[in-house]
Design a protein around this nucleic acid. Sequence first.
DNA 1: GACGGTCAACCGACCGGTCGGTAGTTTGGG
DNA 2: CCCAAACTACCGACCGGTCGGTTGACCGTC
Lengths: 189, 189
Amino acid sequence: MREQILDAAERLVQNRGLSAVSFQDLADAVGLRKASLFHHIKNKDELGRLLIQRCGSKHGPRYAAVIEQDTDAPAKLRGIARLFENDLHAGEPCLMAALGSSLDALSGSAVAELGAAAQVSVARFALVFAQGRREGSLAFEGSAEDAAMGFFAMLEGLQTLCRAKGDVSSFGPCVATYIQAVTVSEGLA
Amino acid sequence: MREQILDAAERLVQNRGLSAVSFQDLADAVGLRKASLFHHIKNKDELGRLLIQRCGSKHGPRYAAVIEQDTDAPAKLRGIARLFENDLHAGEPCLMAALGSSLDALSGSAVAELGAAAQVSVARFALVFAQGRREGSLAFEGSAEDAAMGFFAMLEGLQTLCRAKGDVSSFGPCVATYIQAVTVSEGLA
DNA sequence: GACGGTCAACCGACCGGTCGGTAGTTTGGG
DNA sequence: CCCAAACTACCGACCGGTCGGTTGACCGTC
């Protein structure tokens, strides 16, 4: 049941932001009464923190599956981007954008957990950039972490921007342009 | 007075999201009583729409000033990025991230205006990418619009991500890595 | 004396959250 | 094997407070 509540909450928060989701909304979405929710979630701050934790435990394995494939780095970047694109098409953009862009509405501990979750994702993606540099398939200046953070930021930003423009179809071409730019072209190198 | 209200509202919304900013907050911030605000702003939906419009009329000229400089495209990209970086350091991230990541909390007309504003920015940045391709200073596949949208998305995403991680200093290196990747290196070409 | 701006007072709805209580299930001791 | 205690999940009613928004009066200015 708790998982169902969090599933519904995630979907609502992704598209509205945490502070625009009330316990009443959440109760309606899962078919319970408002009071019952408090048996599963202590308060709104805990709701936010649970959502952030799930953001890691739920999507982390999906990223890991792509990263652990036996392919070159550009293919992995495309695979990661496709995960974000699919979520966007499913109307489920990453929670980190919704939560991160209204930081002052979160408690201190929630902010800390959000930052930690972001760092975990960046570190994961950095492995791909490091692999790409090692195998000569990616070219970029600076640290792999910086490159990975830029990549992650673009994925987050594209989800938001595509939805704002009502033009979900441009996610793919935009990210493809980026990946091509960091990929060492076959003709050279 | 209306401008002062909108200034204060912008600052609040940037860091909290529109639905977490109440008229009471806003009244406290500008030193008026809540009731007085409604002589300047009809309702919350209009507040959101005015904020979006200002996002264009206020920041548009700043971008234009950089774009109309007589420099090469990579320098213009760095200039645009620096604007976003300065705003981030000033605790004033772009409104589009805050508003765009909670679209379902906005009215239909507000969403339309937000999308239009986003399109205007993308078109502006696309001019720079087109120039770069023309003068041979930037290399990328696909349309200039796609490249520009990816660039814009990264700037938006980096603002959010840096704040979430509490590490504002990594904005510069991350975006530098991207710009370098799309810039045609002097040794080649 | 018309007018733009400000305000105190107020409104109904809703907010996050609590309370007391009720079914149903699980558990353990005689 | 039974029954009572304990526990889980749920709920109606309610709390103080805040929400977005309205009203009507008051003010200085031209």
